[in-house]
Design a protein around this nucleic acid. Structure first.
Length: 407
RNA sequence: GGGGGAAUUCCCGAGUGGCCAAAGGGGGCAGACUGUAAAUCUGUUGGCAGCGCCUUCAGAGGUUCGAAUCCUCUUUCCCCCA
């Protein structure tokens, strides 16, 4: 069997390793227990988490044992890394509820049978810690001087950092120590922003038990110009279909920057690397094929084959031919009422536009089409033959389609 | 605990009595060009109504013909000293 280290390396996951050679050797010869932590700060995982799930999946396929660690305890504190503001405090109940949702997702991607993977929650050991005891047991091993020098706190030195958040690193380090001790977990993985937190853990393990633990971080999903990937108008790109519909999800990848195609294919799909190479070296309009495959593959993994198929069909019918589709946001109107409405009111009625001013702007600038015909005037009303026709498609800009059903 | 500063429209950030719905940038939206891409260029970006009105500049009061701009109190944040 190939070494998963080489696979991850080839696909561009790996960013930093504590001990590159030793890790490679270990992964090549023994089944290794490793962990990745997920803080349930929201009620759904997002695409950044998915990247970590991909890693766990690759690892498990190669015979290693993942521990998906839910950060029920760490979330009570909040990771200051890369945050400009302090995270709002979540209640224990919210955290628990979020954690439950996370668990369902992990079960979809990992095989938890016969202990092939574990799911733990650090609330189980963090919440009952005794303060003074922790300070004496763990706190002694941390140098504040060194912590302050860590990159992840640097940015916060200007904005301010509370003592609460400052302790996050200690919590996470302690997690690693517990897992090392109780589950023989020798490796912690995470996004590259977790580097200092991971190092904290390996050092703690060394100091406390003299044991050797390893850490490795993965590239964050960023676009070619360095911005965080997975941002949509509505915020993050969520895995929960209630929060990001499969169609929107599909479209996100379908519209990805050319320069990001290779990275996405290799990180977010299981396509063999020669196929990834072939697809991402397509040029000009050809590369759209690669984007379609990317979008389809990723959507399939997250929402299942059926939804991926539907999203693809919808996208094709909307963009290639000026088509109709059931899988499209839809608003229903009574024929009597819609006959009275002008285009602005219709736009508002569908929620395509939040105010009349914006509706006017949009129409004036030529951004609205009804059944493929550009709406020219603000006083446009649906012609009678369309009202009796059952449904019309309104297009806002190039990419937003909305169906109106009339009965 | 003492002293000093700050809070502006989605974000950053100008504005220090009328010319302010508020510069500039970012972001968003739309148009052109394209490949449902990027870059670029153009328009637009509080609301309602076709240029007049209404609600905005942390909150509550006050001074003024008139305040985002001045005063008072409140809240929050930052900095320095202890």
């Amino acid at each position: 069997m190939s070494n998963v280290f080489d696979v991850l390396k080839e696909r561009g996951f790996i960013e930093q390793c504590t001990h590159e050679d030793e890790i490679r050797e270990m992964l090549g010869k023994e089944s290794t227990t490793f962990y990745i932590g997920f803080d349930p700060t929201a009620d759904s995982l997002h695409i950044g988490h998915f990247l970590q799930i991909m890693v766990m999946t690759h690892m498990q396929k190669h015979g290693h044992r993942p521990i998906a660690l839910i950060g029920g305890g760490t979330t009570m504190v909040g990771d200051p890394t890369d945050k400009t503001d302090m995270r709002k405090m979540l209640t224990r109940e919210q955290i628990k509820a979020n954690g439950e949702k996370f668990k369902l997702v992990f079960k979809k991607f990992l095989d938890f049978s016969d202990g092939k993977a574990l799911m733990l929650d650090n609330a189980d050991w963090l919440l009952e810690l005794n303060y003074v005891e922790l300070l004496r047991e763990i706190g002694v091993h941390f140098s504040v001087n060194r912590m302050l020098a860590a990159d992840c706190y640097k940015s916060r030195m200007e904005k301010g950092l509370t003592f609460l958040e400052f302790n996050y690193m200690i919590m996470q380090s302690y997690d690693f120590y517990v897992l090392y001790k109780d589950y023989n977990c020798k490796l912690q993985l995470g996004g590259n922003d977790q580097w200092s937190n991971i190092l904290g853990g390996t050092e703690l393990i060394r100091r406390k038990s003299g044991g050797q633990a390893y850490g490795m971080t993965f590239s964050l999903l960023t676009t070619s110009d360095g911005k965080k990937m997975g941002k949509t108008e509505k915020g993050a790109l969520w895995l929960d279909p209630e929060k990001t519909t499969p169609y929107d999800f599909y479209q996100y990848w379908r519209n990805i920057d050319d320069a990001d195609v290779r990275k996405c294919l290799s990180l977010l799909t299981f396509l063999p690397m020669d196929e990834v190479e072939r697809l991402s070296s397509l040029e000009g309009a050809e590369i759209n094929k690669a984007k379609e495959i990317l979008a389809y593959e990723v959507t399939k993994m997250i929402h299942g084959e059926e939804d991926a198929e539907k999203a693809q069909q919808t996208a094709r019918s909307l963009f290639v031919k000026q088509g109709d589709s059931d899988d499209m946001p839809t608003t229903e109107f009574k024929s009597a009422e819609i006959a009275q409405m002008d285009i602005i009111e219709i736009l508002i009625g569908t929620g395509l536009v939040p105010s009349k001013s914006e509706g006017r702007r949009l129409v004036t600038q030529g951004g609205v089409q009804v059944d493929g015909e550009k709406v020219e005037g603000l006083d446009y009303k649906l012609p009678p033959e369309k009202i009796s026709g059952g449904s019309v498609i309104i297009k806002k800009g190039k990419k937003t389609h909305h169906k109106i059903k009339i009965d």
